[in-house]
Design a binder for these strands. Structure first.
Length: 538
RNA sequence: GUGGGAGUAGCUCAACUGGCAGAGCACCGGACUGUGGCUCCGGACGUUGUGGGUUCGAUUCCCAUCUCCCACCCCA
């Protein structure tokens, strides 16, 4: 049996209703904060993540889905064919256009030769490929006349391939990438979305619009061992505020606005016992100084710490603060803190963020042990945590990334963003709230010969926004009613000859058992009215 | 990547120290030919995750492998 691969899963009803609820709620919140949706590709050049997230991070060094886009095999084969032919029959091929790695071969008038040449060399594989295509085509189009088989060859300066039909050559010239190796491109499924958004910001010169407030909802990919609330394909809801400094993108007001938005959103979806952990990790300069100080402070004590910390002290001293080993805590407590290393602008920025948060009434906890794993973060760093999620108690996190755009070759574009782990959010909601999936308003039970009439009725009802489920004339009425109550329909509508003759249909309340006869013209209104009454009565 | 636990019917779980693979719920049919829920009767249901080994005989013991869960590493 073929199963969903490790770390991935199917989201099924009724749980999908909860996902939709979350997404609808967050879109609604984004709307009033004037954020707009951006959708970036699900895969990008590997370099994008290496440069933004950081080469040395675990994400990049061992958790990405990365593959190489090699040269087209047909191109390679044709290149080989060209070389062979050229050496065997000097002058038979002519270079008409040249770039470093591309040559256009003029084979006009030489079509037969081309084919003969191919047929003489089945080992080249080209003919095999053409024949295979021919067979596949014939299998898919039985009885049709033999097709013109087409070999697609990537060309330079043409967005699509030129075509060589087999057996009936109609092309004039063909470009072959003689190098055979348009340097294979390394691609990666996005492990997070900020890099993609910033790439798009640069690529489309979004600074021309001033301040950009963008949000996204979508899958991300990390190749880690699955765990509670951690999947290899996971979903994030995120947002970025990014723009030129002159547009105010660097202002602490933006940090506070984003955090306040998050508090609003969590309250809105019913997660009220959250805690906002707040810290400032300073600018690149501060961090460099702090890192040095930390290394120095660790040097004399590191030998007494756990093996993880010993490793961290070398690779990434900041992460020592994540240590959960009790024995290490007294040592960690005595380490210098980033707050002591913030320069004047950074400290002011951080104070102002806190000031605004207080004035809008968003509670937070300062946590100077909170550090972020990604290289691009600067200044404000935050996390919202929530109990009852096991070791993965952080439900969202984010921070400022003032230098990211430059490091990707863009203009100065300070920004701040967050990403919500949607899987975990939904998981947290599932524990408190039952997924609300709307039940059908009516189940139409057609008696023999009544499928057509029933279909007409269903169309009308649905047109009037009545959630309608349609049975089948081959079902016995008993079975229809059974099904109707099983799926939770409010009403059953019986469609039989008697009803059609009378022009009025039997409408049965499946809860009370009460049954009334409703004239056809009043059906839609009556059902939606009654259904609404039942719905609101709950 | 590391450590621990677990995989048996659609679901939740049984099956003693190795001896015919079971129950509840759900599903399907009937009692009841155009009236559901309740009741009663009947039915279908499995390569015991997969592959190998030990054994007369393996759900049970051994090895490998896959998947899930929990945690670590790490992280939005």
């Amino acid at each position: 049996m073929i199963k969903a691969i490790r770390g991935t899963r199917d989201l099924l009803p009724p749980e999908t209703a909860l996902w939709n609820f979350v997404e609808a709620a967050v879109r609604d919140v984004f709307r009033v904060y004037n954020f707009h949706e951006i959708r970036t590709p699900i895969f990008e050049e590997t370099q994008l993540f290496a440069r933004s997230v950081g080469e040395e991070t675990d994400i990049v060094s061992k958790e990405m889905y990365t593959w190489e886009e090699g040269p087209d095999p047909e191109t390679t084969l044709l290149g080989a064919w060209y070389d062979q032919r050229k050496s065997r029959y000097p002058g038979s091929l002519q270079r008409t256009t040249a770039r470093q790695d591309l040559i256009t071969i003029d084979i006009s008038g030489g079509a037969d030769t081309y084919l003969v040449e191919l047929k003489l060399r089945p080992d080249a594989g080209v003919v095999d490929r053409l024949e295979a295509r021919k067979r596949a085509w014939l299998a898919a189009h039985p009885g049709s006349k033999p097709p013109k088989l087409i070999l697609a060859v990537p060309t330079w300066e043409e967005d699509r391939a030129k075509r060589i039909p087999l057996g009936e050559i109609i092309l004039d010239s063909l470009s072959v990438n003689l190098a055979g190796e348009q340097s294979p491109q390394s691609l990666t499924l996005r492990p997070e979305n900020t890099a993609g958004v910033v790439r798009a910001y640069i690529e489309h010169k979004l600074w021309d619009r001033g301040l950009n407030k963008l949000y996204y909802i979508g899958p991300q990919f990390r190749r880690e061992r699955p765990q509670k609330g951690r999947y290899r394909q996971f979903y994030q809801i995120g947002a970025e505020i990014i723009g030129p400094p002159t547009a105010g993108s660097e202002s602490p007001a933006r940090d506070a606005e984003l955090l306040e938005l998050l508090a609003t959103f969590l309250d809105r979806v019913g997660i009220t016992d959250w805690t906002l952990q707040l810290n400032s990790i300073g600018c690149a300069n501060d961090r460099a100084k702090y890192n040095d100080a930390l290394r120095k402070a660790l040097e004399p004590v590191v030998s007494k710490m756990c093996s993880d910390c010993q490793r961290r002290a070398v690779t990434n001293p900041l992460r020592v603060f994540d240590c959960k080993v009790p024995e290490d805590q007294p040592i960690i407590e005595k380490l210098p803190r980033i707050s002591q290393f913030l320069d004047e602008p950074c400290r002011k920025h951080f104070e102002e963020v806190q000031g605004i948060l207080k004035s809008v009434g968003v509670e937070f906890q300062l946590n100077d042990r909170l550090v972020r794993g990604l290289d691009y973060y600067t200044r404000t760093a935050f996390e919202f945590t929530h109990g009852a999620l096991g070791a993965q108690n952080a439900i969202l996190g984010g921070g400022r990334y003032d230098g990211l755009s430059e490091s990707l070759g863009g203009p100065s574009a300070p920004g701040i963003g967050f990403a919500i782990g949607e899987d975990r959010l939904v998981m947290a909601l599932k524990e408190s709230a039952e997924a609300v999936q709307r039940k059908p308003d009516v189940y139409i039970a057609p008696l023999p010969g009544m499928n057509r009439e029933a279909a007409r009725l269903a169309r009308e009802l649905r047109h009037h926004d009545v959630i309608t489920e349609l049975g089948d004339e081959n079902f016995r009425l008993k079975k229809s009613l059974e099904t109707a109550s099983k799926i939770g329909a409010r009403f059953a509508l019986i469609v039989g000859e008697n009803e059609v003759k009378a022009g009025a249909f039997a409408l049965k309340n499946l809860e009370s058992g009460e049954q009334v006869s409703v004239p056809r013209s009043e059906l839609a209104q009556k059902i939606s009215e009654l259904a609404r009454k039942i719905q609101s009565g709950r």
